[in-house]
């Protein structure tokens, strides 16, 4: 195949991030930002949550939850800058800023998750 594009990989991250942002993120926000703090539901409590958080699978899950939406943002924001601000000629800088930003965000999330 000629001129193979790396876009499929970026689009895969973008679409996976879209699914996570649309389906999983609202559940977490509803539970941890509204339902537990406002007492609509009885929260699991700090100690229980901490035990849950220290389980490797929880960490991996939360890393995915943090990382994929960042790549979704990166892809969207890249095209917003390309077409919205019409600065596509700065594409190399934009690409590094967007996907680099998402990568840095992922690393920071991993550091935080594994340091708890």
């Amino acid at each position: 195949m000629s001129k193979r594009s790396n876009e499929p990989f970026l689009w895969l991250l973008f679409s996976a991030g879209g699914v996570v942002s649309a389906l999983l993120m609202p559940i977490h926000l509803l539970l941890f930002a509204l339902a537990f703090p406002l007492g609509w539901l009885d929260g699991p409590g700090y100690e229980k949550l901490l035990v849950l958080l220290r389980h490797p699978m929880t960490r991996v899950y939360l890393l995915v939850l943090c990382s994929l939406p960042l790549f979704h943002w990166a892809h969207r924001f890249r095209f917003t800058l390309y077409d919205g601000l019409q600065i596509k000629h700065l594409s190399e800088f934009i690409n590094v800023f967007c996907y680099g930003g998402a990568t840095v965000g992922t690393v920071v999330a991993a550091c935080l998750l594994w340091s708890i």
């Binding site: 195949m1 000629s2 001129k3 193979r4 594009s5 876009e7 499929p8 689009w11 095209f79 077409d83």
Partner: peptide
């Protein structure tokens, strides 16, 4: 068709 469509200026141009 995929050779043409999967290039940068093909489907990936669409936002």
């Amino acid at each position: 068709r995929m050779d043409i469509l999967s290039q940068h200026d093909g489907i990936w141009g669409c936002t």
